[in-house]
Computed example of a mutant assay.
Amino acid sequence: MHDAAPEVLYVARPAPWFRAVLLGFGALLVAGLTALTVASTASDDGAPAIRLAMCTMSASSAIAIAVLVALLTQRLRFTVTTAGVVLRSFVRTHRIGWPQIAVVAVDTGWSQRGQTLLALHDGRRLGSPITEARSAMRRGERTRDHGPDLMTPARPTRAAIDAHVRFLRGHRGR
């Protein structure tokens, strides 16, 4: 008999409005660079083909950078499931089962304040930038949920703590 797929309990990811803002910023960037290209080639003084080529290259590289940033930003995920936690960063994906996790806590560090921190039994400590207090609005939640000092467990941390406690209760009961 096959085990059922893990149930997703909570997902922290960039909100749809954030994606719309990124797309709008990209559209403004493209429009501005296109206007710059047209304006620079419209002047009569010397080598318009070279200026056009340079503007086109700068426009295409700016567009490529904007698309890359938008794609990488959208990749961030913090998923709590009945089997464990999935941390998806800009480059890597960590799948951590509940048996590997010793403690779920709030990161009190200055630069990652409020993020969900997973302390593993092997001594590693893993966090997810999308769960930081400063990312609350980006994921469509309230910054106020992190408390006045930004170190109160907010929705991502509470979801992970609750699921971890359920795992520990079920594991001890066997």
Rank of each mutant, 00 (worst) to 15 (best):
T152P: 02
L150N: 14
G173Y: 10
S89H: 15
S61I: 12
V11L: 03
D122H: 11
G46H: 10
F18A: 12
D149P: 01
A15E: 04
P6T: 00
R166L: 10
S58Q: 11
S60V: 13
P153H: 01
R13W: 00
Q115M: 04
R172L: 14
P153I: 01
T79I: 11
V86G: 06
S135C: 07
R77D: 05
R51C: 07
M57C: 07
A53K: 11
R124Q: 13
T157L: 03
L22H: 10
I101K: 14
F18H: 05
R95Y: 06
A49S: 15
L52W: 12
L28N: 14
A133D: 03
L72F: 07
Q115Y: 01
D122W: 10
S43P: 04
L76S: 06
G114D: 00
G84W: 12
V69F: 15
F90A: 14
D45G: 14
T37F: 13
D122A: 08
A35G: 15
R138C: 04
R142Y: 01
F18N: 04
I130F: 10
V106M: 09
P99M: 03
L9R: 13
L118Q: 07
G32Y: 06
D45H: 13
P6V: 01
R88S: 14
A20P: 01
G32S: 14
T93D: 11
R75E: 02
H171W: 12
L118G: 05
T79W: 04
A42M: 08
L120G: 09
A47C: 04
H164D: 04
R13Y: 00
P99E: 01
V104E: 14
A49P: 09
A4M: 02
Q112P: 00
R92V: 01
R19S: 13
R174D: 11
I63C: 15
V91P: 09
L23P: 00
D162E: 13
L117E: 08
A160L: 01
V80T: 06
D149R: 11
R77G: 05
C55E: 06
R169E: 13
P16G: 07
T56M: 12
I101E: 14
H121P: 00
R138M: 14
D45P: 06
R125S: 11
L76K: 01
P148G: 04
S61K: 03
F18P: 00
A64Y: 06
L29W: 03
A133W: 09
L28A: 15
I96R: 11
D149A: 10
D149F: 05
T116W: 03
H94K: 08
A163G: 08
F25I: 02
A70T: 13
L71E: 02
A47K: 07
L72R: 11
A5Y: 02
W110M: 14
S40Y: 05
